[in-house]
Design a protein around this nucleic acid. Structure first.
Lengths: 333, 333
DNA sequence: ACACTCTTTGTAAGCGCTTACATTTCAGTG
DNA sequence: CACTGAAATGTAAGCGCTTACAAAGAGTGT
């Protein structure tokens, strides 16, 4: 593999000149530039990004931490972030934390050791303190889908409480009064926020928010099934079921159908997230749009603006508001 | 950020010694090791992976090219590869090629410039020649889901022809005789292989393989819908529909339902790939399992074995055989 | 006490670039 | 034609590591 040195020899110029035509930040006469470019082409020269990074202390890569590499939610996120950065010649290095404190921590340390220019974190398991320390260091960091006190301009979040509120409100507006809820793990901030919104909507509508109508799931499909079984068995008069994410809604749908319930005739179901497959479901799932792509794009923009001094027209927003996506799984009582 | 030099000072040893305790490949006395480790801990030292790579000419990272970062198929692939490599302390750098020759090419060049130790490519758009050249270079390369002549031990593939055959056979065994087919883009090898298998099954069963029963889609959901419309309109007597992937099967299901057809009572549908969401569909999709995860895992093993000299017990297989996953969308005619 | 071997540690060159600073080139001027 | 200063190019230090090689220590046997 040719090095810059060989190029400089072939072109009959110094190393520095070759470096200059590569980076284009210093004036080089047209004649020399031509010579260098020819030499590069002839040798099939390809700069060694590692050496460039070491010398310039800039890697042109942004670390992205997600919880999983599969699943619609993270797929959408990765895709958006990658697209946004690629436009400006920046690359993402993706790692998965698997919602485990140690693994998230390791993944972040890995990204740091690779000397990413910035970090975009969808971190669910590490502590607020750790994130705070990280943000205070000189490595630029943004946090997605999690609000950490004191780090507001580093956080990009969805108003989960409002989302929970909207879902419940949608059901109430259709005349439902006996409403079941399958929540995410309550220790997760987004799960508890959604639930809080749900409760608020019920209360405002004068409906008692009964604790035993709430089943705590784990955001996975199977717990949606479990939740459905539980609720159907104990509270057969429930006419609407709200799930804290689409995966669980899908599980609940399956379980409901197996129990002989038609959706939405016998039971209305509302999801949350609006992941891609929610429209593959039958009936198509009424859900709350979680603008994860907007979050990702905004986070990428923040990095471009604050780290790479790219001129970005759009303003940087930190709070995103979810909305109802009306499809076919919710109907009048 | 502390450097190795500062650690060596703090520990009162030379640079080389610090490097040795980090890499653990040379004997260092226990006493010195302790001193160094203490100094590292005190300084919160974190090796600079970039500098390590430059000096050692090894990055401990494997480049992975996929077509998209979202979607179940690639999600599963990325996830498996990452898991397999992480176990041995190796990392993946993921890039997307978007099934576009230039973008795939650029992505591969990017991975090369990052000096990955090996490349795992799910490349659909670049030419066979390019891949051949790549494999002949000294950078280890494996190709997933594509067979290139002369590169057999670098390729990991699914027997798509067999898969196509099995799907058709499954429908035939249920008594279907009028069978529609929604294919992928015929210029894609996997799409044409699947179709070839389909034809063979029909022929063997003494059913005429009518060309106009075949609709060429693009592997996306919408073209499944289009295909369904086309077939339903022109050949209303079709009782089974086979789709070259699950996305299109999903689209076809929606379109069928909108046209008032019950699945599988009025129309049986078979998919291909067995991506995660195929079991979220209603009715759950009968499909052909595409062992993409096995491919990914095997590719990772190949790299571990051939590049990192890891001792791997399992033999390396290059051809994977698909099988029918019986669910609820295919029934007796 | 000495020569000899085996271990442990240090020295210094280099990996392939970037960039501050020094030097050369050359058009423009009086 | 010598002189000036801006533009173009070159020189060399250094980014933070690894590793071949050299040197020093620690045992051994006589």
């Amino acid at each position: 593999m040719a090095t810059i040195y060989e190029v400089s020899e072939a072109a009959g110029v110094s190393l520095a000149t070759v470096s200059r035509v590569m980076n284009g930040n210093t004036k080089v006469s047209d004649r020399t530039r031509k010579k260098v470019e020819t030499a590069m082409a002839e040798l099939g020269y390809q700069p060694n990004a590692i050496a460039q990074s070491l010398a310039s202390n800039r890697t042109n890569s942004v670390g992205l931490l997600v919880s999983e590499l599969h699943g619609s939610y993270f797929g959408d996120l990765m895709s958006t972030v990658e697209q946004a950065l690629k436009q400006y010649g920046k690359h993402v290095i993706i790692t998965a934390g698997h919602v485990d404190e140690k693994r998230e921590h390791d993944a972040i340390e890995f990204l740091k050791s690779r000397r990413c220019d910035a970090l975009i974190l969808h971190a669910e398991a590490v502590s607020d303190e750790y994130l705070t320390t990280l943000c205070k260091s000189d490595l630029p960091v943004v946090v997605i889908n999690r609000k950490v006190d004191g780090l507001d301009d580093h956080c990009f979040v969805v108003d989960n409480e409002k989302g929970g509120y909207l879902a419940a409100q949608a059901a109430i507006q259709q005349g439902h009064k006996e409403i079941g809820y399958i929540s995410g793990p309550k220790f997760k901030k987004d799960a508890s926020d959604r639930l809080a919104g749900h409760r608020r909507a019920l209360t405002e509508a004068g409906i008692e928010a009964k604790d035993d109508h709430i089943f705590e799931g784990d955001f996975h499909e199977s717990s949606g099934q479990e939740g459905m079984h539980y609720l159907k068995q104990h509270f057969p008069d429930i006419t609407a079921l709200i799930c804290a994410n689409d995966e669980m809604a899908s599980g609940a749908m399956t379980a409901a159908r197996e129990a002989g319930l038609e959706i939405p005739q016998h039971l209305s179901i509302v999801g949350f997230d609006n992941v891609l497959f929610s429209r593959y479901l039958y009936p198509k799932l009424t859900t709350i749009n979680n603008p994860i792509q907007s979050l990702g794009e905004m986070a990428a923009r923040w990095v471009l603006k604050n780290v790479y001094d790219t001129k970005i027209n759009h303003a940087i927003e930190h709070l995103f508001v979810p909305e109802v996506v009306e499809r076919h799984s919710l109907s009048k009582r």
